[in-house]
Write a protein that binds this DNA or RNA. Structure first.
Lengths: 240, 240
DNA sequence: GCATTTCTCTAGCGGTCGCTACAAAAAAGA
DNA sequence: TCTTTTTTGTAGCGACCGCTAGAGAAATGC
């Protein structure tokens, strides 16, 4: 499972320039090194104070891997500062609190690792082909030794004592199933799939497969084993 | 997912009577109110000291529900003492530390809620029928409003900072898949299933379905939705 | 009665949690 | 140089974590 991507990194710091009564850096999410006023179109004006001593993106990637491996709760701020190799105040200044760092990680995960699902849905010519590709790519991705096994969106916030975090990942999972369902219904409308298909159940089946595969990957299944599983699972599709 | 039951409640206090140098109550797991010496066959000898002020079994059930709902880590000892309605020293005297309480909870879960899988494998005449029944019963159990959704063994120790706990549930999940695989291979041996079936992949597919269904139940799927999913999933089986 | 055994209650241990105050450090603008 | 702005390191806050010492309470055996 994964994304609903689109990476709109707006967030709270949207529009709030003039009134200077606001303390707290408000978890600055500016992606590059732009100056604060931002109304100035000055292209190369350096930011005012002491420059950051670390690269924000690589630090974010380290946090991503830590959250992916251990989950939201089990990854402490102290763990994060260690793997990101920065002090706690730097973390809070650059990313806000732990939760907003996690939210940014989830967004980044959607872009970097979780986009295969949306890509398959968008690029393949039938729902059948899209789901087949999606599952095969999941088999590869979830067992890629270059990063933790399984899917962050599935595993990073189960049994989480912060209900909002758990809920946000749940919404991503359910949105993905809804996207699969829409793709199936589109095929039904064009006649590429029979009209008597239960689109909701078929989409939910696909979602359950992906989530089950993610769990299997965490439990030690290899890419080949997951691929064998996918070939079995695809047998349910009406012949096209 | 679930059990590998058999409920052998032996544990560390197996054989170690005579030398009295042992302090620490050793997390007494005696299920009923038997006297300590135990060599005496006296049937109705009451235990020596102050009797327990709570019922051990109902307290265990309360702990089970709490762990089921929130998982191992997210359920604090303070949460446990509140829902079990006992003080912390009583909890430690009766169940040992948090981890051994959790282990006992998992065993109890296997007996009370997770035995449907083994029962289906043992009682149905074919692997096909056993898996069909297993999945249908999972659809009912995982959405039963009388207790938390999904499967404790699947969800209670993901992203757990105590690796041993995570591993013990992982072993239960994999053992269940191994049991399904054995049942499939038995059918292949008798000719009830074709000889060219990939038993391992088919068993893993079933395991992934169960785990995915558990996740779906947690994410809000109804019993009817899971049952529709099961009917789709069963279409993969070779016609018998 | 009295000693013994066991459980319960209060209180609090050391440790980690997420998070922040504060001052020194490093840059730009004057 | 001097002020301003921002980041960095140190150090520690209050809250909660799992767990337990110690005294009192409630039972049995004598």
């Amino acid at each position: 499972m994964h994304s609903m991507v689109s990476s709109k990194a707006s967030e709270q710091t949207g529009t709030q320039g003039p009134p200077a009564t606001d303390r707290r850096p408000a978890a600055e999410s500016r992606p590059a090194a732009k100056p604060r006023p931002a109304a100035k179109p000055g292209p190369a004006t350096k930011p005012r104070g002491r420059p950051r001593s670390f690269d924000r993106e690589t630090a974010l990637e380290k946090a991503l891997l830590a959250f992916w491996e251990h989950g939201y709760e089990a990854t402490s701020v102290s763990d994060l500062t260690r793997v990101m190799d920065i002090g706690a105040p730097s973390l809070y200044a650059a990313f806000g609190d732990k939760r907003s760092l996690f939210e940014e990680v989830v967004r980044e995960y959607g872009v970097r690792y979780g986009s295969f699902s949306d890509r398959a849905l968008a690029e393949e010519s039938t729902a059948h082909a899209a789901v087949a590709r999606m599952l095969r790519e999941a088999a590869a991705e979830y067992t890629d030794p270059a990063h933790p096994y399984g899917c962050l969106v599935v595993h990073a916030a189960t049994n989480c004592s912060t209900p909002e975090v758990e809920e946000s990942l749940r919404e991503r999972r359910n949105a993905n199933i809804a996207a699969i369902r829409s793709r199936i219904e589109a095929d039904m409308a064009t006649g590429a799939l029979p009209a008597d298909v239960d689109a909701a159940a078929l989409a939910r089946h696909t979602g359950a497969m992906i989530q089950g595969m993610s769990q299997q990957a965490r439990d030690g299944a290899s890419q080949e084993e997951l691929e064998a599983l996918v070939e079995i699972a695809m047998a349910i599709w009406p012949r096209t």
